[in-house]
């Protein structure tokens, strides 16, 4: 269904303002239930809500999935229509991409190309929504992940993430006379392991939590450290794990979360469709790789082809200055629309 630019913009702005008017930090996704029901009714897209608080709009049987997320980082910021842009919590990450996907699927339905749009839960935490979808055993021919890629980028690679909890113990004693100190010992090992983000293909090993001590004059008997590790497909996770384990060989090391990195190719039909859609809108598409992790890492095993794309400046993610322009929203919506239309056309020939 071809609509004029103003009509498309009116639809996508309306959806985004509705979605960003409800506060949906991870774990509180059901706050958007009434708004989603309203959007489902207005755009004639059947709605299902799963046990994790993920929303599924459109054709539940479709082999094409447009997957963004409904949750945001904490801290509500009232959405504001600034006349040429919309600001507010989550308008970049990722309610802008999600709104563009919803409107694109509405337009595609009018063309007889039914797709499924997911507003997944918990992406900002442990990806409970995406993991639930994987557990259900669904398979898709093409998945587009809706994350901001600065509007003209198409992400084909994400780094993986691993979270380690480490518990060390020692003998406690009076701080005035004990020669060994657990804080000093663990701190030295943290410094030894610490590897800040520097190059894409160099793993980052970053301590994010350190707790120890119970009293002013007692050398502590327990210490807890948490490491956030990021690495690319060109790194060996086993080597990283081994390095951490051997550094803390006398401590308890627990891997509490692990999402492997993902890398796909520019030679896939889904990348090609997205790039051709951008070119048709007058933009120069570019393949990009992301330093972070997204639901693309989780969904890759259930997708024959996958890529991530979305409107919005990725540098504004997780800041108090999230803002997406009308132009970005329009380009995002039409990019999803044109790309999926090409995939539908090719699947029929």
């Amino acid at each position: 269904m071809r609509l004029g630019k103003e009509s498309v913009l009116s639809l996508v702005k309306g959806v985004l303002l509705k979605l960003s008017s409800v506060y949906t930090p991870s774990g509180e996704e059901l706050n958007a239930k009434d708004v989603m029901l309203q959007i489902s009714k207005e755009l004639d897209l059947p709605l299902q809500i799963d046990e994790t608080g993920s929303y599924y709009l459109g054709s539940q049987e479709s082999k094409v999935l447009l997957a963004s997320h409904i949750d945001t980082v904490p801290g509500f910021i009232q959405p504001k229509d600034e006349g040429s842009a919309i600001s507010g919590r989550g308008v970049v990450d990722a309610k802008g991409p999600l709104s563009a996907m919803i409107v694109a699927s509405h337009l595609l339905k009018g063309d007889g190309c039914d797709v499924l749009v997911a507003g997944l839960s918990d992406e900002e935490r442990l990806s409970a929504g995406a993991k639930a979808l994987v557990r259900k055993g669904r398979q898709f021919s093409h998945v587009i992940v809706g994350e901001p890629t600065s509007t003209s980028g198409v992400a084909i690679e994400y780094r993986g993430v691993a979270h380690f909890d480490i518990y060390c113990t020692s003998r406690e004693g009076h701080s005035s006379s004990l020669k060994y100190n657990l804080i000093e010992d663990v701190s030295r090992r943290i410094v030894e392991l610490y590897s800040p983000a520097s190059e894409y293909d160099k793993p980052s090993i970053v301590p994010t939590i350190f707790r120890s001590g119970s009293a002013m004059n007692v050398a502590p008997k327990e210490a807890y450290v948490h490491f956030d590790v990021r690495y690319s497909v060109r790194n060996s996770f086993d080597e990283i794990y081994q390095r951490i384990s051997s550094t803390f060989k006398d401590c308890r090391v627990e891997l509490i979360e692990h999402l492997p990195p993902v890398k796909t190719s520019v030679n896939t039909a889904v990348y090609r469709a997205l790039s051709r859609a951008l070119i048709s809108l007058g933009l120069k598409p570019s393949p990009v790789r992301k330093w972070g992790t997204s639901d693309m890492n989780v969904l890759a095993p259930i997708a024959k082809e996958i890529a991530a794309y979305g409107p919005g400046d990725s540098k504004l993610e997780h800041t108090d200055y999230e803002r997406v322009t009308y132009e970005e929203l329009y380009i995002g919506t039409m990019t999803y629309y044109n790309a999926v239309k090409e995939l539908c056309r090719n699947s029929q020939t």
């Binding site: 990722a94 992406e123 084909i156 990009v288 790789r289 992301k290 330093w291 990725s314 540098k315 993610e317």
Partner: peptide, 10 residues
């Protein structure tokens, strides 16, 4: 072509 670009975040 230009080399694959790098982008911050998710």
């Amino acid at each position: 072509a230009e080399q694959i670009g790098e982008d911050w975040g998710e």
